[in-house]
Every structure is written in C-alpha cells, then in structure tokens.
Nucleic acid binder design. Structure first.
Lengths: 252, 252
DNA sequence: TCACTTTATTTGGGATCCCAAAGTCAAGTC
DNA sequence: GACTTGACTTTGGGATCCCAAATAAAGTGA
C-alpha cells in the first residue's frame, strides 16, 4: 500500500525543486509535521529517503540542509542516464529475444511520427508523444536483459527530467507557426533517432544501437543547454515547467 | 553522527547476503528488534533503506520478503558499474584538469606493480593492492567532472563486489606456487589495463580510456564467471569470501 | 470430516513521548 | 562593548504505544 512517508517524500522533493524553500533555509521535522499535518514518524522516514537521494543533508541534531538540484546536476544526471540507456540499447541489440519487444518500440515511433506529421503540438499531442516516448525508453530498459540497468536508472529518477521518457518542450512554441514548426522539427529529429535505434536493435547492430542512443541523450542535453544560454536565470523549476514529464502543468 | 538505523541496515544486509535467513523466511520488525535489541524506530528506518536497495520487498501489513542478491544480480550490477566507470574514464580523458589527479592513479598502479613484481599474495599484499585499486577507481569517479557518475555508482554499491575498487581473489592461490603465479599474473593483467587507462587519460584519448575501462570491468565479470563454472553451487556468500573488498575476513 | 464462523495473534503504519545534544538568548562581569 | 555563563529552546534519535489490517487458530454445525 502507499504510505504517507512515500507520498510525503515526493511532496517535499517537489517543494524543494520548485524553490518553495529559501536557499539557506533548513528543514526540521517539527516544521514539516506542521506543514503537512502528520506526525514525526512518516516525516523521519521521508527525510531519510531524501537524504539518500542527495537533495537534503542531515545535520547532527540540527535539522536538514537543502541541496536543491541545479541545472548542472540535471545535465550531469541526464548524461549518466543516457549512458545507461546506451548500455541497454547495446544489450538489447545483442539479445536473442529482442524481437518480442520490437513491436512496442515500433508503435511508439509510429505514434510520434503520426502526431508530428500532422503538425500537432497541442497539450493532448504532447501528452501522447510523451507517453509513447516513455514506452520506447522503458521497453529498452526492461528488455535489455540486465535488470540493474533499469534499477540504476530508477535510483536517479527522482531528479527532474530523469523520469523515463522525459522530454523537453519549449512551451512558447504555441506563440507562432514558425516556432511550432521548429518544435515539430526537433521532435522529428528525436524520433528519427528512435527509428535508427530500433533498426539497429532489430538487426543486432549493438555498436550502432549504443552510439545512437548516446547521441539521442546528447540531443536532450544540448537542448537543455540552449534554454540555459538563452536565459541565464533559468531555474530547475523553469526547466520542469518546460518539461513534458508527468507534471501538474500537464494535469491541469 | 552515525545512527543505529544506518548500522542496522548494514548488518541486516550482511546477514541476508550471507544466507543467515532461509529463502522463504520473512523479516518482521518485531523479530529484528529482538535480534538486535533495539526498538522499532531504527528497525523501520533500516528496512525502508533495504527496501529501496531492492533486497527486501515490503508486504502490506505482513512483514518483508527477502530478495537476496544472486550471482547473476552481481554480474549485472558489475556490468552497470563498469559501464559507468567507462563514462568516468572518457570524461576524465576529456577534462582539462585531469593532470591534477594523475599522480594518485600512477601511485596506485605503482603499488600494485611493486607487490606483484615481488610475487606477493599474502593478506597484507592483498590489502595494499585492494586499497590501491580503490584509489585508482575512486579517483577516476571523483575527477571525471560529473558528480552523478559517482553518485549513481554509490546507489548500487551496497551490492557485494560493487564497492569501489572491489577485486576478486581466488583464496586458494595460497595452496601452491603454481596457483600463486596464476593469481599474480591475473593481477598484472588487470594492472596493465590500469596503465593503459592511465595513459589514455593522460593523453586525452577518450575513446581508448573508455574502451579499456569497459574491458577492465569485463575482465572481472569473466573471472567471477570462472568461479561460477567451476562451482555450480557457488553462493554470493562464497563470492564475498573470495572478494578482497573490505570484509570481516580481511579484518580478522 | 469438512466448511464456515469467530476469536486470537501477528504485523506494520503512524502517533506520541522521553531524552540528549546543539544552538540561542539573556544576564552578569570586566 | 566584549566576553562568559547559565537557562531555555530547538532539534533529532529512539522507545513505546495505539490501531487497523491480515493471518492463524479454535469452535461450531451439517
């Protein structure tokens, strides 16, 4: 069953990432109990988890220091994740049972291709593409034959942008047809990379699968960096808002 | 400060890995309180951690199922770690500040070279070589410029053989000069790989650094597999005993 | 003897409390 | 005004308890 401490960890993490706390502010158990109207037991459990994730640091008898992830942290973690996914791609390409999973990946590619071909970049299209992207990436992680690749990805998936299938969208693409076209184009590039990965895996070309998966994640890193260059005061919260990862923005 | 729950998690994990519990046995908070003479609070905290590590699985209101890591799990995790280290090697090779860290790596290589040149494989020599190996690997992880490589490695370092610098030793090498020579030879091979990695990093050859680091971890995987082939009833506990990772065996 | 019901026990989630450690603040001294 | 000291407050570690949920055991009737 879902316990209070698990959900609480998610809420506190979200608050930290969205800058609810000041940089020098320290968390305390009592404060969190009051804020979230729970007792200290689930708060303690949640804080241990966040400590393990590296986004708070426990002082001795003196509350918790916040270490909110930075854009740099996210870029580094995305690089690590991409590298892990490249291992998954290589292993899947070498797997004798890979054919079983190719249809799911092919379908995901088709969904994104259909939507981008129609020039759609509305919220519903974004939602569908993100779901398809998630299927593509999680299939690879789960079908590569090494459970610890997926397990290790999960250990860092608490960070923004690190959830399976996270995609970055420039939310301003709605402003003008020119920007919409650029957004669609970028998605098509990404999906073309999906296609190459798929073909490489299908044909057992491990080197190509690995290389293109690595390139695929690098594309995301470069895109995040363009946001950063354009807006030097870009925060993680901003980036999360840009992201199509399952978020409150999408839910609203 | 060290808390009871952190140490308790380590002890329970150790007990699980060493087969103290039967396969079908379930852990309960009350039992662990009794066994370790502590209250439920630190037990609960420790169990949450072990659950996150994947070696126990929480039932709803019904104790915890043990999922002791298998040899296969370890091989998979070592592969993941090796892949992460190959990223660290590549990044370090590309880092403009890499020269600062080369002396530590060179010294580690020298220590292992000296000891193997002397044909030493006694406990003290093993201890020194393991410490040097740890320096070599942790330097690379810490100096690669991406903190999440190290962070991610740490997330799986609870598994046997996944601690930084873990080395596998065939403890029977003490039996005969022939076996000692084979053990020494294998260590020299590994250290020769260290040398290649070092040179590649020194000269900024990222591809070579990455490739050899990957090969280096593969060597360890193959070695573990030789144990497995030789002894089909090999357990994780056996493997830990073979390992030179910091363990009770070495301390005794 | 078997199926069903009832009762007892086990179990974890969470609330609450005690205690020691660390920091803050006010009062006193030089 | 600076420094010291003691009292007070804050804080987390851990112990203990209550409660609901799940399982096991005992009792009952056909």
């Amino acid at each position: 069953m879902d316990t209070i401490d698990t959900e609480l960890a998610a809420r506190i993490r979200d608050d930290i990432i969205h800058g609810v706390y000041a940089e020098d502010e320290r968390l305390s158990e009592a404060k969190l109990c009051e804020t979230h109207q729970v007792s200290r037991t689930p708060v303690r459990l949640a804080l241990r988890r966040l400590e393990r994730e590296g986004i708070i640091q426990r002082g001795e008898w003196r509350g918790y220091k916040i270490q909110s992830p930075t854009i740099s942290d996210i870029l580094q973690a995305v690089q690590v994740r991409g590298h892990l996914e490249s291992l998954a791609a290589r292993l899947m390409a070498q797997s004798p049972t890979r054919a079983e999973h190719l249809p799911d990946m092919a379908e995901a590619i088709r969904v994104i291709d259909d939507l981008t071909s129609q020039g759609r970049l509305d919220e519903d299209a974004i939602h569908q593409m993100q779901a398809a992207n998630k299927v593509f990436h999680t299939t690879m992680l789960e079908a590569c034959g090494n459970e610890y690749v997926n397990f290790t990805c999960q250990q860092i998936s608490h960070l923004p942008m690190l959830a399976a299938g996270s995609m970055v969208f420039d939310r301003r693409v709605h402003d003008s047809p020119d920007q919409i076209e650029r957004g669609i184009f970028r998605l098509r590039i990404g999906n073309a990379q999906h296609q190459v990965i798929y073909e490489a895996i299908k044909h057992g070309d491990a080197v190509r699968a690995e290389g293109m998966t690595r390139e695929h994640s690098h594309t995301m890193i470069e895109y995040i960096e363009t946001f950063e260059k354009r807006d030097e005061s870009l925060t993680v919260s901003d980036l999360v808002a840009y992201s199509a990862a399952e978020s409150d923005l999408l839910k609203s």
